[in-house]
Every structure is written in C-alpha cells, then in structure tokens.
Design a protein around this nucleic acid. Sequence first.
DNA 1: GAAGGGCCTTAAAGCGCTTTAAGGTGCAGG
DNA 2: CCTGCACCTTAAAGCGCTTTAAGGCCCTTC
Lengths: 322, 322
Amino acid sequence: MPRPRLADVAAAAGCSTASVSLVLRGEPGPSEATRDRVLAAAEQLGYRPDRAASLLARRRSGMLGVVTDVRSTFHAELVEELLDASARRGFDLLIGARSPARDEERAVETLIDSRCEALLLLGTSGPAERLVALDGQVPVVAVSGRAGGVDGVRVDDERGTREATEHLLALGHRDVVHVDGGAGEIAADRCRGYVAAMTAAGLAPRVLRGGHGEADGAAAAADLGGATAVTVFNDRAAVGLLDALVRAGVRVPADVSVAGFDDSPLARLAHVDLTTVSQDVPALVANALDLVVARLDGVRAERREVVLAPRLVVRGTTSAPP
Amino acid sequence: MPRPRLADVAAAAGCSTASVSLVLRGEPGPSEATRDRVLAAAEQLGYRPDRAASLLARRRSGMLGVVTDVRSTFHAELVEELLDASARRGFDLLIGARSPARDEERAVETLIDSRCEALLLLGTSGPAERLVALDGQVPVVAVSGRAGGVDGVRVDDERGTREATEHLLALGHRDVVHVDGGAGEIAADRCRGYVAAMTAAGLAPRVLRGGHGEADGAAAAADLGGATAVTVFNDRAAVGLLDALVRAGVRVPADVSVAGFDDSPLARLAHVDLTTVSQDVPALVANALDLVVARLDGVRAERREVVLAPRLVVRGTTSAPP
DNA sequence: GAAGGGCCTTAAAGCGCTTTAAGGTGCAGG
DNA sequence: CCTGCACCTTAAAGCGCTTTAAGGCCCTTC
C-alpha cells in the first residue's frame, strides 16, 4: 500500500482533488459537508501532504536565510532555536556566516541567490538604507541588533543591565563596577543601563574595558580595585572573570558578586551558577518568525519593531557584600 | 529577470532539457561537446537547480530520520553535527525524540511515516531482529550503539577507557578507580577497558557505582577512598565529580586526577579543562552519512560496521600523583 | 547498397500539489 | 417560468525537474 496521495483522499471523499486541497489547507470555499467528508477520509487514510510538491506548486522555496556572526555564542544559541522553531513552521534554514573577512552583504547575496523567501539578520549593524533596499527584494528582520528601517526584534539591553545593577544595589553593594563589551551598539546600551542605575542611586559609575570573550573578562579581574560587585557585558566574559577570581583566591559571591548577561548554557552549569540577564531566546526567535510570516503572507506592510523585556535570573554568584 | 530554469539553459545551449538535466547531474550520455555547451550556458545564466522540483521528479523526500535520546548531551552533539553535515549533502533532518516514555519503535514509526529515506538510530539497543526488519523497509544505520545486524558506526569505547587508564598509570598512579555509567552496553564496554588496563598492570580494579549525570559523578566523590586518580564514564559525571571535589577542598589534579569520556564542550571550557576521551563526532557523523548514502544509491547491499579509534585528549585535570 | 549497431538526443509523460476559470445548482426576484 | 446571483465544485493547466522510450545519425559489415 503506497502512501496515499491527494487523489486517493479525493476518491475516498467523493470529490475532486481541488476541494481536498482547499479543505486541508483551511482555505474558504468548500461547504461544511465536503469539509467533513474530506477530513474524515484524510484521517482514515492517514494522508500526509508532500511538502516538495506543495512548495513546487505554490512557487515557494520554504527556505529562510539567516546571517550570523560565526564568533558569537549568543548567535549560535539563536540559530539553534531558529532551527527548531522554523522547522515547526515548515521552513528550512539556510545559514550564511558572516565574519570580519566575509561581510554581511556577501552572505546576503548567497542567501537570496538560493531562493530564500526572507532573511533574518542576527546582530546586523548595516546602514539603514542598505537594509531598506534589501527589504524591497525580500522581507528582512533584524534580530538582536539595531533595526534601521526594517522589522526588528531585540531585548531591551539597557534595561537588562540596569536591573542587574539594581539587584546588586538592593543587596547592599555600593562599589559596583561594569566590565563593558567594547565597541558596538549593544555594549553601549548595556553600559548605559549600568550608568543609569548607579547615577539614580547617587553613586559614581566606574566602567572597565572588557570585551566579548572569556579572556576579556579575565583581564578585567586585576582592575576591580575595591569593588564588591561587577556587572559584565556578557556571560562569556563573566565566566572568564569568575575563573580569574577563583584562581586568585577570591571567593564568589562571599568577597565579590558577579552578574553576566545572556543566560547562556554556560551560566546554567551547576558549578558556574551565574546570576545573569536572560534574553529569552525562544521568544526572540518566535517573534522574529512571526514578523517574517506576517510579511510573507502579505498580512502587514508597515515596519514593526518588537522590544522584549529582559529577565534577571538570580543564581549563586550574587549575594550581600562582605 | 526571473531566475533561469532548466528550459532557459537548454535554449541557451541549443539542446533539450533532458540533456541539460543529464549534464548537470553528471550522468553519462551527453557528448563532450554538449556537456561543454550546457555547462557554459548554465554558468553564464547563473542557473541553480530547484530542489523541490528535483525531489518531486525523482520521488524522493530528501529527508533523513534521526532517533535520539532526549536526555543525552552526547546525542545533542551528534544531532548538531548531523544538522550541518546532512545539510551539506542535501538532506533535511527529521528528529524523533525517544525517552523512557516514548520508545524507539514509536519514534521510528513517525519518521517512516513522514517519508524519511533512511534512519539514523543514535545509541539504539533494540533487538537485532527488529532492526533488521526495519532495515528491510528503509536503510538503517546505528550510530554509537550496538549494531545488531544493520550498518553501524561507533567508537571503540573499551579502548577509550583503556587508554585513559593507561595514561594515568603512566603518570605514576597506582590506585585508580572507575566511576561507571550504570546499565547499558556502552557503560559495560568502558568499564571493561578500565579493568583490562588495570589487570594488565597487575593492579586490582575498583569500580564505583555512577551514572550519566552530574549528580551521579558528584555522589561518587565520597567513595574515592585513597584513590589518586579516577576515570569516569562520561564528561557530565566527571564534571559533577570535579565540582564535588573542589567544594570539598580537594585539589585537582594536585591531589586527585580525573579523566572523563566524550570530549563534550563542557570539558573544553577553560575552567574545567578536563582530560577526556574524544569521540570525534564529525567523523562519526560523516561515516554514518556515508553508509546511508551508499545504501540509498544502491552501491552496497551487505552490512557494514565502522569502529573508530578514540582519541585521548590530555588537559589539565590529570598529572602525576601527589 | 542494405542491414545492423553504436551513440546521442529529445519528445513526452509524469511526480503530487495548487490555482484558476469555467460549470453546476438552487433559490430569490421579476 | 425565466433571470440573475451566490455558492460550490471541478477540470485542467501548470510548477521545474527526471526519466523512458523512441528516433536520428553515422559507421561498419557483409
């Protein structure tokens, strides 16, 4: 018994393949009676549509293009979630890696070339006019990055570090420093949140030079001075800092409290147990896909930006000052 | 200018679409002259085949089914690599999760139902006759598990722990214990490797009850006795053990050396830096896909089993005994 | 020179689904 | 009783590619 096709269902339901197609996709047209018969027949035969044929007939590719920065673990997380979430919505993912050498424009070209129906740019910082032009060709959504003129989804970074800092202040810390993430919009936002919380509390902010990686965080360990608490640009740098502190015999959180940003899997490890700010990757991804789908279905034309609230996750690396 | 199709290339090359199709897929038939013209035309037009149409016409789905144990991080690694490697070979992956509640047979059913062309069973332990029967329906490859009667790819687990143990013995350790992984073929193999190395060295083996997770490893910490070195079933358990030791004030590797198994990302973290046995996930996956492809292309009929050599990765958790 | 045989090439028939335009049907209104 | 209209339904034409069977062409061979 070969697998049933549309025609088999049609035969069983006593109608045409056109009707079956309409019913199974929930399109308007067929009457209630036809609908019932078709659904019953499909169910009874265990019918499963053929994706390739469907895509072919509707002239779609079923592919979404993603441009990601190869070096970012946060992007890796986003991609992983995207892989899942987009599969659930019936899309395949084509991943275009961007690196210092191979810039975004190039990656985008390849993706468009490969019939992607829409593009998700992770952490893009391209000039607005380029993005808008691109958006003219194919729907574009900027995920976790500044979205100049195109749809975007991101977490409120400023609020994230602000809340982390406020958490430390509430614990009684006064000398709180921030290890920043170097250049870039996101690092600037996070730094701003820290500064805002400190100034609001009438305290003087102090920012240490940092970066995206473990080594950057570790390097900052020497400059803490008398600080009893630190907010760090991201989890990787925070873990580096943590490691340097432990090796130096500094107890965390007894002597120094540390808070990261991202809630990466790293932070969740039992023996790291880092207090951090969660970006809610699933929500970020789900929203991005919603935007994409809405555009593809032609439901919406105007630009939209979604800003999600960050969520402070308090774990074991923060406590009251010594 | 809409994207070129086969007919456009045919027109440009002055031949039929049939010839173009043959040439582009490297099938025999067309003459050298035709081949050249077609390739030139395709290149010139920037032709890219339409996967959906191609799959449809050749009655294939382009999908591979993978059955994985949701709880295993090692499986997660395999899946991640598979995602990549199979995409490169033009396959989509359909993942069927297996858990204590939802057994392998069920997952397999769904996958076959969804038109998968072949199945990759991760860590299966199904009875040989069931696997063979399944193999009759669709090519099956057992990855990292005992392959009863069907194609299989795995690492030599016994040799892995044997080499890890030998490494510790070579460092001068005498009192080496093994924390095992509970029931299962793999745990048994690894345990056997440890025992073999110890007996060969004229020492008495001592095996502690363990398991797959961090907690299992941590629990074993209390039972080490005077042991100066430990080989652990897998990295997760080893990290748990490590954590328990550090918290108890035991220095690693100064007081106790620890070796894991899997070379998971966990082991590679700077502040874990675990000596472990690498399974070479990319090789495992590449071999598995080779087996699948060979079967699908009908190149081979007889069963084949690939056993890869493990590789000891010496990092910072092992050193000479105190 | 006819018959036979390699080699290439191609027309045409799908693959399983979507979509569009045309064809019923039944009922209200004239 | 004929129109007109609103609703359903369906035949048929693809989507872009693969594949098969048939056809051409040009040598050989007798």
